[in-house]
Simulated scan of single mutants.
Amino acid sequence: MNLIWQAYLRNRGAIIQDGRVVDYGHNAAELESTRSATVVSDLSHFGLIQFSGEDAQSFLQGQLSCDVNQVNASAALYGGYCNPKGRLLASFLIWSQSSSNGGGYVMQLPAELGLGIQKRLAMYVLRAKVKLGDTSDIQIRLGVAGDDAEALVRKNLGQIPASRLGVIQGESASIIRLAQNRFELVVAPEKAPAIWEGLSKDAIPVGASCWDWLEIKAGIPIITPATQEQFVPQMANLEAIGGVSFQKGCYPGQEIVARSQYLGKIKRRMYLANIRPRVSENPVEAGDELFGADMGEQSIGMVVNASPSPDGGFDVLAVIQTSSVEAAVVHWKSLAGPSLEVTPLPYPLS
């Protein structure tokens, strides 16, 4: 996290641990506000990798699951980076940026994965004219969400993208529309305080876990160290949110990803659910295994992401064997553990 920005947020009541805003002293109230009001959140818990140089587009096209040719000054994409076995090493949001901000492409992913993914991708640059750099502290990212988010962003920045994953590169900030009522602003550090002040007049500042909850409810998978190399992209519904292209050329794991799509039904899919642990039990976390009576002691799935729910317990994204969801109650951690209440995702699955 940018140290000057960190000091600024602390002066406004933020409790920060390991570069992540925990909350502003009112965790439960902030979570309820995220459901019912308009909120603003610092997104420094995500890292940024910048790719610049004349071969940046072709290099990324040969490494990532999404069609990088569709990423331009006005359009962002979700995507995945796989190992040769087609298992996700990272999921991300990628956009291009104006030359005034250094040009090239920016990949946003969890900060704890940034250095490792950057080093791995750098191994494959070879003779390509591409430079990779960590720009996490050079650009401040703010999230705005809620019924009044569109009006609030327009009020403070003058314009907004019209469509989902649309981008506007403005003088004060780049604006990415994540959903109808959810936006990300990418801001230069020197401009961030003024924009934060303007937004926080009408939006409630909330911690990173509140933004995590919004991502979960939107069905956006975020691969973390606990879930690296566990899922092919379709298991995490990445193709359903535009993160996989089946028309582009090769990339690591592409043959397995394509075979999973065309030569058989995906046996595991990502579901949205709620889990209510007992008071004596630990919180639900990414990487926790799931079980069902139909498979006995054999795991039938894994939690991808989890966050406290304003309705109680934890809302989760979980990859689960589809036959088990249809045939049996799914349990957290063991057959004796709390059951999952599966709810509809906000997008269809093929």
Rank of each mutant, 00 (worst) to 15 (best):
L3M: 12
L3D: 09
A7W: 06
L9G: 08
D18Q: 12
V21L: 13
A29V: 12
H45Y: 07
G47W: 02
L48T: 00
F51D: 00
A56H: 04
F59K: 00
L60P: 07
V68G: 11
L88Q: 06
F92T: 01
W95Y: 12
W95N: 12
N101G: 11
G104F: 00
G104Y: 01
M107V: 00
Q108S: 06
L109C: 07
E112F: 03
L113Y: 02
L121S: 03
M123P: 13
R127F: 05
K131S: 14
D137I: 08
I138N: 11
I138H: 14
D147T: 01
A151H: 14
A151Q: 11
L152F: 01
P161W: 00
R164C: 04
G166Y: 05
I175V: 14
E197C: 01
V206R: 02
C210H: 00
I216R: 12
T227S: 09
L238D: 14
E239G: 10
F246Q: 14
K248F: 15
G253P: 13
A258H: 10
G264C: 04
R268D: 01
R269V: 08
A286R: 03
A286N: 07
G287H: 02
E289K: 12
Q298P: 15
V304A: 12
V325T: 13
P338G: 08
V342W: 11
T343F: 15
P346H: 06
